[in-house]
Structure formats: C-alpha cells, structure tokens
Design a protein around this nucleic acid. Structure first.
Lengths: 262, 262
DNA sequence: CAGTGGTCTAGACCACCAA
DNA sequence: TGGTGGTCTAGACCACTGC
C-alpha cells in the first residue's frame, strides 16, 4: 500500500482501488459493496481510512451510503435520481412543486406524464467534432439518436418540449438499435446501465439561447422565432471517459433550467 | 454541549456555533478563524469533531482551508473566485481557455477586459414579486440597480454582453447609491462584503431563453429577434437569508453558460 | 439481536508554511 | 523551528435496519 509518486495519501490510493473495482464491474449499480470493515481487511488499512475513501466517492455520487444497510453503487434506476442530469423543471404552478421528478416517469405504464418519441436511431461514423468530444478518431463508429420528449399539461395535452440529438461511442453500445430503444420504458441512462453496463457518472453542459432550424421547429412544433435553450452536454463514465454527446433544445415557456450555485 | 432535539451530532452543533460567529461578524471575510485546537478547547470537544464541522463549512465554500497557514473566511475579493456566481464563459477560442476569470477584472486599473456601466441606481419599494423573493413585505425598501457589462474582444472592441436588473434588500444596504457604486472598481459582491458586511454565500438560478424588450435591446445593442439567456438569480447570505434578486440577460453568441453536473 | 454505517475521542506522525 | 492543517490508527459507543 505504498509506491507514492511525490505524495498520495493512503485513503486516496484506496479510493482509486475501489474505483477500479467499480469500473471493472466487480460491484454493479444498485448492489451493495463490502462493508467498511471488510474493505479495511482487504486493503489492510484501518476502517477510518476506508471510510474517508468512501466519503469522497459518496460526495461524487458514485456511491450511496445508507445507515444500517450498507454502501451501494449509484444507479440511474432509483426513482429519486431518474432525472439526475435533466435540469429542466416545471415553473412552480403550485401543482407538484415539492415533488421533484414526479412529472417524468410514472410507477406503472399507465399514468405516464412524458411521451418519448424516437425519430432516428442509426449507426454512423463520427464527424470531427463528435470524435473530438468523445476522444475518438474521425470516422469511428457512433450511434446517433434523435428523440422528442413531450410533457402532459394539466389537461392531458401532450406538449413537445425537448428535442435531443445524441451521439454515443459505438463500441460501448453494440447491439443498440431502434427496437431496443423503443421497447425500453426506463429512462435512457437507466437502460444504458442495465443493458450495456455503461454508468453515467458526471456531465458538463454548455448553454446558449438560439432559434430553431426549420427542421427542429417542425419536430418541436414551435415557430421559427421562438427562443430556445440549447444545451450541449458531454457525459462521462468512470475515469472521466466521455461516452455521450447530447445536444438538447428546450422550450422554456412553462419550464426553466434550474441551477444552484455554491 | 447537548440539548439535543431528537438527535443532532456534536460536530453539527459545533458547525452551527461557528456559523453563528461568522454571521455575527466575529471573523471577517479573508480573515483566519482560530486554529482547530483552539476551537476544540473553546467548545470543549476533540479536534476531530471541530475538524468535521469545518470540513462541512469548507465543502459549502463558507471557509477555505490552507494547509500550514490556517482556515479562512471565504471572500469574493480573492482573485480566483471573483466570478464565483457568474457562469458565463467565453467559447474556447484557444486564447485563455485554461485561465478562468482572466477576462473579467485585471490586476491594475489599466488592462480591464470588462466595462461596467451603471444605468440606474435608485431606492424603491418592493413589488409583490420582489418582496416575496426577498422575504419582505410589499412596499418594503429596496435598492434597484441596472447595469450593462461589456467585454473587450480580441481587437479591443467593447461588446455589451450582459444586462442586469438587481434588487437588494434595502435595510442591509443603507447608504448605497450611484456614486459609491460607480467608484468601486471591485466586483459587486466583493464591494458588498467590504462596505456593507454582506457576504453572498449561495444562490439559485432559473434560466430561460427569451427575446429582449425594445428597451433591453437598446441597452445591449442587439436586434429584437436575438435569442438571449434570461437568468433569474436569488442570492443568499448566511442562514439562507435571501438578500438579492438579480435578473441577467446574457448574449450567447460567443459565450456560453457553463454547468457541471454530478 | 447482529450487522451496518455514523460519531467521538486521543494520540502519533506527516506535509506545508512562515519567520 | 513552531504552528497549522492533513493523515492514520485503534477503540468505544451510538443510531438505524432487518431478521
């Protein structure tokens, strides 16, 4: 438990080891990892040192601690975090203000408050820009997906609100096609982790205000002069590996992008 | 060190005590607080307990730890964090991509890369909406400020980029007027903390895409159909007290709102 | 009740900084 | 060299969960 380049604290080395196990799939999303005492024995350090390593991973949302139960691998399937990376919230109409995510995916197949329509799903070759963002070479295989999310308003009207163009690193999503996408009722990131073992861990977004192109306007059923939020996201798995590029166009007439600054 | 309602850990009580001292101004921004050992003696707990309390406050950016030197009260004056709450970043033109904040306020008065023009500064009475956001009563005194931020491009051209409407809780900013605003060369939040003892600690933002009103378009020198980011911010001091409402209109032609999701 | 994470302590030692 | 935060340990005890 040494080989220190300049200086790396023990707990930080333990953290790296745990991270390696997560990456290798030794413990899968939603599963419990070994107890602190077990890990302390395994790595031959004190419980306190393991604790600090886990603390950091928990702070980064890679692990979830639950007192009395254990420490679990974070998952996008858990009801509470299904929209972890989607910051578009309904303007507070008093309806479900204190019920985050309630408007997205329902318990059963019936009462769904969001309609997801996939307009495209094809295997393509990375353009220069996409390749750069995904740390691939131009021409490397990617999966391209386009879809529209529509939310039901109070009267049950379905209002197209989000248009997304998605590019995935092809090698990590072999066998992904329109059928498998369409039949999945879970959020996309939950499906990625369940079916492809790809866990999205972190993302960065760049946001601008734009007008839609004619094609985009048609898909979202908005006028050409409607201002829209353009959200460019790069999502990463473990070890800061970029694996998805996603550009979203958001209508913000009755919703807003929510952000907390500290 | 008890009187526990249901159950509150010791370090959490210590945290509250430190917070109270911060709020009371016992230690001012940029000053060092007592050492961990001193605080342990003062509160009659172990160093480890104080440590955990400080850890949390540091994680919330209220305190800054510096190994070998001490623990300091966070400040908006420090060069690194002058734009802590401003997420608008220049599109990476290769220029100063890895130099965050370099384009905002310069070392001396000369090489300033942002022009700040105050167009209004007046004392008014809170409207219903502003009062609600600031947890005041309608008609309570507020300070209203409007200003334009213009950034210099590569050729030294000054390009109006941000238009801000700001409302401040009047009672906390007695004596603030156009003159004092105009003569301050520091960022606004740094000035607030130096001259009014008001330390902004946290903020939440709601972002939408909009078109400018005719007046706004004139101030920003943009066309009426240019899509702009509308950023509604509420900023808080210690103890989650809202003290500022700020609505910003951002041009995003060559800049973007940057956000990291975890 | 046993097992898990959470708290608290006391003490030793290390890394960093300033004088 | 002394003081500060940072690491690591060992052990005791508490709070929560599920059998």
């Amino acid at each position: 438990m040494q080989t220190t380049p300049s200086f790396s604290p023990l707990y930080s080395q333990i953290k790296a080891l745990i991270l390696r196990s997560l990456q290798a799939g030794e413990w899968k999303p939603a599963e419990a990892i070994p107890s602190e005492m077990d890990l302390a024995v395994r790595y031959n350090v004190s419980q306190g040192t393991v604790r600090k390593a886990i603390d950091e991973l928990a702070a980064e949302n890679l692990l979830i601690r639950r007192q009395g139960k254990g420490t679990f691998v974070a998952t996008h399937s858990a009801r509470q975090v299904q929209t972890r990376f989607l910051r578009l919230a309904p303007d507070s109409t008093g309806a479900d203000e204190n019920n985050p995510g309630s408007d997205t995916y329902a318990e059963n197949g019936k009462n769904i408050l969001v309609d997801r329509t996939i307009t495209t799903c094809s295997r393509e070759r990375a353009t220069k820009d996409i390749a750069k963002a995904l740390q691939l070479k131009t021409g490397d295989p990617v999966v391209y997906i386009q879809r529209v999310l529509a939310y039901r308003d109070g009267k049950g009207q379905s209002i197209p609100t989000i248009l997304e163009d998605i590019w995935l690193a092809g090698n990590s999503f072999k066998g992904l096609n329109l059928e498998r996408l369409a039949e999945s009722k879970a959020p996309m990131y939950a499906m990625f982790e369940a079916e492809f073992g790809v866990n999205m861990v972190r993302a960065s977004e760049k946001i601008r205000a734009v007008n839609p192109t004619p094609e985009q306007a048609k898909l979202l059923k908005v006028k050409l002069d409607e201002p829209l939020l353009r959200v460019e996201r790069i999502a990463y798995t473990y070890n800061d590996t970029p694996i998805e590029v996603r550009t979203g166009l958001y209508r913000t007439a009755s919703r807003h992008y929510k952000n907390d600054l500290q």
